[in-house]
Amino acid sequence: MKNPYLPHVAVIQDIRDEGPGLKSFDLAFRDGSVWEEFRPQPGQFVELSVFGEGEAPFGVATGAHETGLLRLSIQQVGRLTKMLHSMAPGDEVGVRGPFGNGWPLEAAKGKNLILIGGGIGMPPVRSALVSAMAEKDQYESISLFYGARSPEHITYADEIEQWIASDDAKINVTVDVGDDTWPGHVGVITTLLEDEHASPANAVTMTCGPPIMIHFVIPTLTKLGFSDDQIIVSLEARMKCGIGKCGRCNLGAEYICLDGPVFSYDHLQTMGIRL
């Protein structure tokens, strides 16, 4: 019997600083053949083991077309992530998954795809963005709205420059608080959406960020004319098992780990969930 609790051993290949307290980890499975069955879809997450510390869920940053390396971008917030941040290339961790439903990118083809990311919610948004850009002809357009706390908190800063240069997607970045070096937009993400006149015409939005950001983004999108079914959000919760057994992420009759983490807002409404 396949054991969903049994992690695959993965080796840290590369670690990059992404900003204050944030690092990206590129992981390769020690047994390279694992990747074929693993193949995370954009928007899915994994349970990462630091043996002796336990496990925690992280959204996958890797795009659908990027094979072999699992990228996780992780903020140091607790004891497990603290231990992780002290690790080095060559160190071994465990990975279970991938879990969850992922972004409905297939259904978004032919439409204007609007990705909205905030803070540490960027990894799954990056995954969706690079996956879509790799098939950009399939979409009417692709745009990113990204809000960071400050210029130094911008995740994937180097890549963002490349994305802007590539012209494959329209990239909009804002920071809550600017500084002398920041020439771009200043203000929370909702102001960016309004100032750039995000349009609901033939569009679908996909949002990932902290609960407080989602709480404010949804009414903003509604005000801009987006209907509930055009608003797709990825929710976070404390999770342990990742497969709908341990109960922690129970939301109505559903489980964020199993039925989500991606939900359409109209579905959440029918479940009576307010964000």
């Binding site: 342990k240 098992c241 341990c246």
Partner: peptide, 18 residues
């Protein structure tokens, strides 16, 4: 049926329990 999962280390190894 709700459960917690946590690690208990000892001497170069350990157990993951629920």
């Amino acid at each position: 049926h709700c459960f917690d999962i946590c690690d208990q280390s000892c001497r170069g190894g350990g157990e993951r329990i629920r």
